[in-house]
Design a protein around this nucleic acid. Structure first.
Length: 547
RNA sequence: GCGCCAGUAGCUCAGUUGGAUAGAGCAACAGCCUUCUAAGCUGUGGGUCGGGGGUUCGAUUCCCUCCUGGCGCGCCA
């Protein structure tokens, strides 16, 4: 049993002793001010009302009834409106590090969700151009969310859905055709809604090389096939540069060719959830919470985009995923109600909140204090590749993850590329490198550092007590971030912990200290290094040995 | 007009799911290099948590209302 659990159960017994109505689960949290102690509980305040007493009286009674030894507490005091603050002995506090050393790369993982499966869909771009910064945010978020869930025992499938059907693909083919005809000497006429970037010219060149008999792109279907293939290749390279890997790629076009779209429509009609009006077929999405009913089949006989999306999500459900999480830009939030409504209308037992959506706000890129909008190759937007080439993969990952998804994100290129204290990525990686440096310089193999024979009571300095607490809080932090699907909590924790590492490193030495102190501090350094490396790993960022 | 998201220090943002005197970085100011990386550290100043109501022992957090900004509201995706 860990120190916290011992304290919690001792408190629960004390609560019963002072007459609490039924069993309680006391809440323990870190006091904001470390001077207040190592743990604090608001138990007395929550019990005050049912007991009909003042909070501070209840607090005094709780302390009197508390078995301090069993709770592993050196001191308990009442403070403020009725908080009880606890101080642990340094030995009890720091000995928790033994778990960290034993767990290693598994520190912070949990098997709480073992046996449950989740599919995380992200990026899911149209293959109509290089990935833009919004896709980059999705890639960072989706990958980190997948890792977070995986760390908590979920079996995770990372999935990319190519929207390779519909009008936009037709516009892509026409845009390439326009460039082909320009090459052949015609005046350039890029169609309405077409694509203007330089990459369209590159695709035209590829097409001419492969199909010399059709320099004007008269075979539009062949043009389309080459364009989609080239852009999928391009996007794959973007993702590779970003270090993101997917387990499954799904194609919208396949949902048409294998009849899934038609079968989904038939099922919705059979379920009585549709109606025809003015030559179009509607789904009664209002029966499932949408603002208005939505067109499924247009008058021209083609389906609207959300129909294949519903068919696609049926496959996720049929593949047996407990949860489905979709990471998308907030500009897609209108579709969430539609997809869920379609799944409910089918009446096949899909849970109400399926799929879940993690929506993120827009990204703006700033350089030299000015917003950057244009990439040469893409024409109208900044690409992920631009950012990676300029500031590196680690910095791009961190910057996309350091803000809550539902905040708009300002990506400061100058800050991200600066190799200085101001840059949070460098600051965190530096903490890891410094910890590594202690072992390198001291010629100590970290593998030799175990909890065996360490006197934890020597870690009495305030700076090391704070670092110890941050390390021991890591598993709760990760579990909370996974539960809330919020990777930015990990990013913030890393920055704060890196700060504690730098403070400790600056104030106290490891090598050359008296043997018991050096040994305990080496253990602390190793535990900190493990935890920071695990945190960076979850975010897909490297933990360098030296910088 | 309706829906979703945001509004916290000069700037960029956290705030542990309702707790103590609201925090961090940058910027400003004052200091610190014979020791494991100064790519660093220490300290100081800085606030009507957008405004106003409500819920309760207690609200940045929950509810209502208004203001401002972003996104969406298509037989586009």
């Amino acid at each position: 049993m860990s120190a916290v659990e011992a304290l919690r159960s001792a408190l629960a017994r004390a609560a019963v002793a002072v007459g609490a109505p039924e069993s309680v689960a006391p809440v323990l949290e870190r006091p904001r001010d470390p001077a207040h102690g190592d743990w604090a509980t608001n138990l007395a305040m929550t019990l005050a009302k049912p007991l009909g007493k003042k909070p501070r009286e209840v607090a005094d009674a709780l302390i009197a009834a508390l078995d301090l030894t069993a709770a592993g507490v050196a001191e308990a005091t009442v403070a403020g409106p009725g908080f009880i603050n606890f101080r642990l002995s340094t030995a009890d506090l720091a000995s928790g590090l033994a778990q960290v050393l034993a767990a290693g790369s598994a520190w912070g993982t949990s098997s709480a969700n073992a046996g449950k499966t989740v599919v995380v869909e992200f990026v899911s771009a149209n293959p109509t151009g290089p990935l833009h910064v919004g896709h980059g945010r999705q890639a960072a978020l989706g990958d980190a969310i997948s890792s977070l869930l995986g760390s908590q025992g979920w079996t995770v499938t990372r999935e990319f859905y190519y929207n390779d059907g519909g009008v936009q693909i037709a516009n892509l083919a026409l845009s390439v055709q326009a460039r082909l005809r320009e090459r052949a000497g015609d005046p350039l006429v890029i169609p309405e809604g077409g694509y203007h970037g330089d990459y369209i010219r590159e695709i035209a060149a590829t097409y001419v090389a492969e199909c010399p008999n059709d320099p004007r792109g008269n075979d539009l279907e062949a043009v389309r096939a080459v364009a989609v293939r080239e852009l999928r290749k391009e996007q794959d390279l973007d993702l590779k540069a970003f270090g993101v890997r997917f387990d499954v790629y799904s194609l919208e076009s396949a949902l048409y060719t294998d009849g899934r779209v038609q079968r989904t429509v038939d099922a919705l009609v059979a379920a009585g959830q549709t109606f025809a009006d003015d030559g179009a077929l509607y789904l009664r999405t209002t029966a499932f919470g949408d603002d208005k009913d939505r067109v499924m089949r247009k008058r021209d006989g083609t389906f609207t985009y959300f129909v294949p999306d519903v068919a696609y999500h049926v496959t996720k459900f049929e593949r047996g995923f407990t949860r489905a999480i979709n990471v998308q830009g907030a500009d897609h939030h209108g579709t969430t109600a539609r997809v869920r409504a379609g799944l409910q209308a089918l009446g096949i037992g899909v849970p109400l909140g399926y799929p879940e959506y993690v929506l993120h706000q827009m990204v703006t890129v700033v350089r030299g204090g000015e917003e950057v909008k244009i990439s040469k190759r893409a024409g109208s937007y900044v690409t992920v590749r631009d950012l990676i080439d300029e500031v590196g993969r680690d910095a791009v990952r961190y910057f996309f993850l350091m803000r809550k998804g539902d905040s708009q994100l300002v990506f400061d290129v100058d800050l991200a590329r600066s190799q200085s204290e101001e840059n949070p990525v460098y600051y965190i990686q530096m903490a890891h490198a410094r910890l590594s440096g202690i072992f390198r310089v001291g010629d100590v193999d970290p593998a030799e550092i175990t909890a065996e024979g360490i006197d934890w009571a020597v870690l009495v300095e305030p700076a090391e007590r704070e670092l110890v607490k941050a390390i021991l809080d890591w598993p709760v932090l990760v579990a909370g971030a996974a539960e809330a699907v919020e990777p930015h909590r990990v990013a913030n924790w890393l920055l704060e912990t890196a700060r504690l590492v730098h403070t400790w490193y600056h104030k106290h030495h490891v090598l050359g200290e008296a043997p018991p102190v050096m040994r305990a501090r080496l253990a602390l350094a190793k535990a900190a290094r493990i935890t920071i490396a695990n945190g960076l790993g979850l975010l897909g960022i490297t933990a360098p040995e030296r910088m």
